[in-house]
Structure formats: C-alpha cells, structure tokens
Nucleic acid binder design. Structure first.
Lengths: 214, 214
DNA sequence: TAGATTGTTAATCGATTAACAATC
DNA sequence: TAGATTGTTAATCGATTAACAATC
C-alpha cells in the first residue's frame, strides 16, 4: 500500500468525528465547515483539517464538508462499510453484557458466537445464541470466518485462549482481560486493550487532584 | 497546591506501572531497575524515570526501585489508598456487569448503590444491593457521601442525570454513555469517558489496515 | 467576481529519548 | 572504593497550531 503511516493520535480521534457527524446527520445538517465543527467538538479547526487530509481531500474550498459524504468516508476508513464476524470468548457478566449491546451490530460487528470454559454455561442462551465450549472454537472460527474475538476472560485463561484464536485465523482481539496482549500475539494480529480498571484509576487520580487543588 | 501540571500522557501510563509492579510483587521481586522494567513493559527506561520523577524521587542510585514501596506510592498518587463510595446509574446489562466486578472493590471503589429509571427493575437485587429509582438519588448521595457515579444509561438519559448527580455532590463521573460529558459538567467535576464502540472502531481500523498492507 | 473555506506549508509547542553528572 | 543506576538537563522527535496561498 502507498499509504503513509497515520499517527495513533489521529486514529484515536476518527471515531469521535464519526460520532459527531452522525449526530449532525440526525439533526439534518447538510454541510459544515471545519470552524463550526471545531466549536462543537472543542478541538481546533486546524486539527480537523489536518486529520482529515491524512486520508484525502474530503472538503471543498468556500463550502466546507458535506456531512453525509464525510460520514460515509470515515466509515470506510474505519472499516464500518462491511460486516465483521465477531465472537465473544468469556460469557461472564461483562461478556454477556457486551453480547446484548445491539449497537455494535449496527456498525457491522456481527456477533456469531459466544464461548466459555465453564461447562455450567454450556447451552445457555444469550441473545439467541447458545454458549459453546471453547473446544469448539477451531472449527467454528473457520466455518464462520471469524475476524474479531472479544476476550472477556480472566487474565490466566486469556493467555491460553489467544493462541487457539490466532492459530485458527482470528485477526483481531478486543481484549478486556487485565493484561497487555499485544506483547504475546503474532505480528499480523491486531489487539485493542480496554482495561476498565485503568480507566477508573485515571478518574480517581483526577478526583484526587481536584480535591488537593483548592 | 505546589504541584506542576502533570501531562495526560504520564497519567495514562501510571495505572499500567501500577499493574506491572503488582505482578512483580506477586512474583516475589523485591527491587527493579528502570532498565529491567523497561524490558518487561516495552517502554524506554528513560521514560519510566521521567514519569516517576514527576511525583518524586522514588528510586535510589545504584539500587533501582523498591517494588513494594513504588507500588504503594503510585497507589497514593492514584488515590487507591482510600475508599471511594461509588454508585452505578443505569442497571442494564453493562451496569449490572460492572456491579459484579469485584476487582474494583479491592482497589477502593466501593459500590454502595445501584439506580435505574425503569420501575420494573425496582427492588431487583444485584450483588446484594437492591436497585433503586433515580428519584432517591439526591438523598442517597448525601447520606453515603458518594464520590463517583458510573453512568451506564442511554445518551439521552445520561445528560439529565448528570445535573442531578453533580447538584447533589458527586465529584467524578465514569461515563459509558455515547456522549462527551466533560463538555456539560461543572468545572470541579471530573469525567472519564469510556466509549466502548470507539475502541471497537479503532480495532476495526487497524484490522482493515493490516489487510491492505499485504 | 468576491467571499469563504479548504489543503498544505511553516512555526510552535510538548513529549520522548539520549546523555551524563550526581550519588547510593 | 568501584560499579550501578538514578535524577535531571539537553537534544530530538512528533504532534499541534498558525498562517496563507489555492480554489471553489
């Protein structure tokens, strides 16, 4: 590919642009300038233009950006213009909660299976899918061409699971286990770590800080 | 306070240091140099030393860092050395899943109440706590001196809720709703936005990218 | 055409890395 | 003391912002 490397910071902002553009569409807004958008999003207009121009010239001088067009272009960049078969591995509280999040489906992340290691959960139905045991993973992944695995298992089990998943063709791992999987995954597999407890700690840090300030 | 402003990037890394140090304690490691730690964490030793020195000199020349001591110092910085009364507002799948996450309790985030707007859920027990209706929030927040509110409600309801919460003394909001609350909250209230769907989109972007690369 | 606003280059700012003197 | 490793300053790198010519 000819694409230059896009910085992490830019990629991090893309879904936020996408969300705001979606809201503008709902509000019936047809076009928007980088300046108007910058007011809404509290980022600089300069940053918006720089960010977007990493991927192409989506705007028009004197006019601004067509909201629908820009929204659909960002969707393409993010891979939301096609369906990604996804499974959840770990059918505990969090796994089941994510399974019930219908929002993801709308964005093309289609849940095709739920797995766990606990035999007690075998056959239990979650949003119309029966929980399966992990020994069925290899066959299932190939059959359904699973691209994304959501990992909602304890750290110890997560590490074992990763090998099974990637050996059988999973190309992306959405990791909720308390460990950094990107260090133990083949180089052609992408990982996004969520780490909710770290997020809560950052909140706690800022809370602490505010209290001390006064 | 005399503290200079610590950059976001540093704060983002703190919980990760904390996690690795916790693992080192479990492994019985007593001391560690920035160099050893840098190998494990895949960051530069220089960055580790710079980061830590924002908060004080926790190491010793020729020796390195005492693992237990550093761990406990970071805990203090993050506010994990005391208890934070927390509530969950929104007792849907995600809210209930988070309620059952006992990990948070261990780090001082004590769940004292769960609330929802849906009367059907009233009185339903989640991890020993009966779901309450949101009209009981004002009294409850004051009585239990609630510091943190976890928001797991749809966007529309989240916005109304924020006012009730902050008017009654909540000082920190852990926001899972698909909106940027930091733009609509009093300046003395801190917000941490989670945005799971944005995380999934970043994974999707990287997946897309890898596919195109070959 | 004149006005508006992009795309893009240049300037600034901040964060990361390297280097090394201080010191245990 | 000699060796190791921090704390900290200086150099580099990258990301953000400002400015403006290009152009719709």
């Amino acid at each position: 590919m000819e694409d230059k490397d896009i910085s992490r910071a830019v990629i991090k902002r893309l879904p936020r642009y996408y969300r705001y553009l979606g809201e503008l569409i709902e509000d019936g807004v047809e076009r928007i300038s980088s300046n108007e958008l910058s007011n809404r999003m509290k980022v600089t207009a300069s940053q918006i233009r720089q960010d977007l121009n990493n991927f192409g010239g989506f705007g028009q001088q004197g006019y601004g950006y067509n909201v629908k067009y820009l929204h659909s272009e960002i969707a393409k960049i993010l891979g939301l213009d096609r369906t990604h078969p996804m499974i959840i591995v770990g059918a505990g509280n969090l796994g089941q909660a994510l399974a019930n999040y219908t929002q993801f489906e709308k964005q093309g992340f289609k849940l095709v299976g739920i797995f766990d290691v606990n035999p007690v959960l075998k056959g239990v139905s979650v949003r119309g899918l029966e929980i399966q045991m992990v020994d069925e993973l290899p066959e299932f992944i190939k059959k359904y061409q699973v691209e994304i695995a959501t990992l909602t298992l304890p750290k110890s089990k997560a590490l074992e699971m990763v090998k099974v998943l990637t050996d059988n063709g999973v190309k992306a791992i959405w990791n909720f286990a308390h460990t950094d999987l990107n260090l133990s995954v083949p180089s052609d597999v992408v990982v996004e770590n969520v780490h909710l407890s770290e997020s809560l700690m950052r909140l706690s840090y800022n809370l602490n800080r505010r209290e001390k300030e006064e």
